[in-house]
Write a protein that binds this DNA or RNA. Structure first.
Ligand code: FES
Ligand code: FES
Lengths: 146, 146
DNA sequence: TTTTCCGAAACAACAAATGTTACGATATCT
DNA sequence: AGATATCGTAACATTTGTTGTTTCGGAAAA
């Protein structure tokens, strides 16, 4: 299956909005993400529901940040896009009464819980402001485009 | 997408083979996994290539363990089924030259690398013998069936 | 020689994200 | 008021990997 790229895309867009400022239309953002305005609205709509961005319809409308980047963590964006667990343990449900299947599943779930905790720690401590700083350091004079 | 249940299924089957002993046909295993013999052959074939099980064709043939359970880690099974990384960071590739996209991707990749390391640690230290022990403890007198 | 196995190829089914089209609502400009 | 630019939303097609299924061939035992 195609890997879910919504989180990465939204991080990209949000930092872009801060660095290049101003209100951006779905079409412009779609251009920068090589995709369709509707796809952009779907994801940004979820962020709006969580108070990360604001949208305005009509002529001259578009999207803008609702908070500054240092008040947005990666976890905030992740949660806006998907309430549930980030990782899903690849368990089986072939024979639910079997103690062996349960034992194998419990081992996998424990391992995935530890991995998810690690992810959560990173997501919680990393703000979009830090991503912006990394981007500026990488750019090193080169313009941030579009 | 349907979650990949091959690892859990193979852990289940391998522990089953040890606890109930003897050689098992693909059809019998398929019954226990609520699936098709061909699906079983696909996954067990991968384990055979890694020396975890052995297969024998012809009448009276089937599958049996090639090593004892305490010589098989969860990681061995995972690697047999899939050489690559367990977790894949959900990065974007919309605008590869953009420093912002690269920065967002690098943050995600670092987080996923930490999570994968956690998984690897668990997978490496957990042997199938330990899973069997958990299963027996859970069963608590109740028979392990099929 | 018949039966019982695995091995492998060639599909169909399914699920989730993505891409696409289309239309309605709303705010701004002239 | 009318034209234009935007978002909001529904409906559908596309894509991709796992799983499920059918079918044949080959090998070993009875
Ligand atoms: S910051 Fe990457 S395209 Fe705008
Ligand atoms: S151990 Fe045989 S069905 Fe679970």
């Amino acid at each position: 299956m195609r890997t879910d790229g919504r989180l990465a895309r939204m991080l990209h867009v949000l930092v872009h909005m801060e660095l290049l400022g101003g209100r951006k239309t779905s079409e412009r953002i779609a251009l920068m993400l090589n995709t369709n305005p509707v796809v952009v609205r779907r994801s940004l709509g979820a962020l709006r529901d969580r108070g990360i961005v604001e949208s305005e319809g009509g002529r001259g409308g578009g999207w803008k940040l609702a908070r500054s980047l240092d008040e947005i963590t990666v976890l905030d964006v992740q949660r806006a896009l998907n309430e549930g667990a980030i990782l899903v343990a690849p368990i089986s449900r072939d024979h639910p009464t079997c103690p062996v299947e349960c034992a194998a599943n419990s081992v996998l779930e424990e391992a995935y819980a530890a991995a998810e905790l690690e992810l959560m720690t990173k997501y919680t401590t990393m703000t979009l402001a830090q991503i912006a700083a990394i981007a500026l350091a990488n750019a090193n004079g080169q313009a941030v485009t579009q």
